[in-house]
Amino acid sequence: MRLHEPFDQEWSANAELRHPAASLLKVPVVAAALIAGAEGRLSLDERIDPKMLETTVYPTIQAAFDGSTLSLREIAALSIVTSDNAAASAILDAVGDAAIKDFLERAGCRDTDPVPGFSDADFENLRGAYTTAVDQYRILTQVWSSRRLGDLRRWLTNNLRNTRLSARIEPPRTFAHKTGTLCDVAHDVGMLSTPQCRASVIVLTSKETDPTAVAYKMAGLGSQMADELDCLTAG
């Protein structure tokens, strides 16, 4: 956890320990797409029929659309807000590996592996793609410092996966975040904001026997951190 101005304090443990990144990798994918769109290298207005996205056994937006088309920007939004794997795969294919690598390098990431993909067939490879809390902080910093990534910040704020750190965080506090999940992995990474200050919060866990219990503990941790931020700024 890192408090931003005016406090600029940090608390961490095992911040350089490598964990399977899982869906946390969707953030640099979408960030790279938005930057490519802003620079004219990718048309985010291109329309796609959601039913043409790759099939998956996991929950997907495809079931919600019949005959409609979505822009690449809308598909990117859904890959973050709902963590839809098929949507994320479409954005990955559109933006390309080189742009994602460039974003990670610009963010200063040293221990985050290339994105293998988000299709059902890629899941074992996804388990082998690692990241660290240090790199996740660098990605958060890049996302919050770039004027071109305002959409991504808005989508992270409206994440529908609110069963971990954000489960007990209520307005006017917000937690703009992305989760990462595998059978023994439960991550949550984001920006916790109160009316007075912001804090980057990164919690990575792996080799868990009961990720549901971990999520419950994270909910308590998130609420506690928000309360402590309020107390700190009140003092």
Score class of each variant (00 low, 15 high):
T132Y: 12
E5S: 14
G96W: 09
A31E: 09
R18L: 10
G190P: 08
E124M: 08
L34Y: 13
A213G: 11
A31M: 07
A186D: 04
R153G: 03
M225I: 15
A98I: 02
E228V: 14
L3N: 06
D84S: 04
M191V: 12
G180A: 13
L221V: 10
L192M: 10
T56Y: 00
D102F: 07
Y216E: 15
Q196F: 11
K207P: 12
A98Q: 06
D97E: 15
D93S: 09
Q9V: 03
L192E: 04
A13V: 14
E170D: 05
V201G: 09
R106Q: 12
H19S: 05
A219F: 02
P172R: 08
M1T: 08
S89I: 02
E124R: 11
L149M: 13
T60C: 13
E16L: 13
L229W: 10
D184C: 02
V134N: 11
D227Q: 14
V214F: 03
G220L: 08
A77M: 12
L149E: 14
P28C: 11
A186T: 04
P172A: 06
R161V: 05
F7M: 04
I202W: 05
C109W: 14
L44S: 04
T205P: 01
L229P: 01
E105F: 07
L70W: 11
T181P: 00
Y58R: 00
G128D: 15
L152P: 02
V134S: 11
A63R: 15
H19Q: 07
C183E: 09
A63K: 11
L229F: 10
S71G: 03
D151G: 01
D8G: 01
F123L: 15
A32P: 01
A234Y: 00
G222K: 12
P114D: 09
A86H: 08
D93C: 03
L160V: 04
F103W: 07
T209V: 13
S146G: 14
P6G: 11
P6K: 09
C197Q: 12
K26Q: 14
A31H: 07
G235I: 07
Y58N: 00
F65N: 01
V115E: 04
A87E: 05
E170G: 00
W144Y: 13
R147L: 12
V57N: 00
Q62K: 07
V185G: 13
T82K: 06
G117P: 14
P28T: 07
L156E: 02
R127L: 11
M191F: 02
A36I: 05
F65V: 00
V30Q: 03
V27M: 10
D184E: 10
D120G: 00
D210Q: 12
P59F: 05
S71K: 00
V95W: 01
D184R: 04
K207M: 15
N159K: 01
S200E: 08
D120I: 00
T179M: 14
E170P: 00
T55H: 08
V115C: 07
L221F: 10
L17I: 12
P28Q: 10
K217G: 11
D8A: 10
D151S: 00
P50H: 04
E16F: 06
N14F: 07
I48C: 12
P20H: 13
R153N: 02
A63G: 13
P59K: 05
T141P: 14
S223V: 10
D120Q: 01
L126Y: 06
K217A: 15
Y58Q: 02
K51W: 06
E170Y: 05
G180D: 15
I61H: 03
T157P: 00
R41I: 01
V189A: 08
G220Y: 03
I48K: 14
T131G: 10
H187T: 08
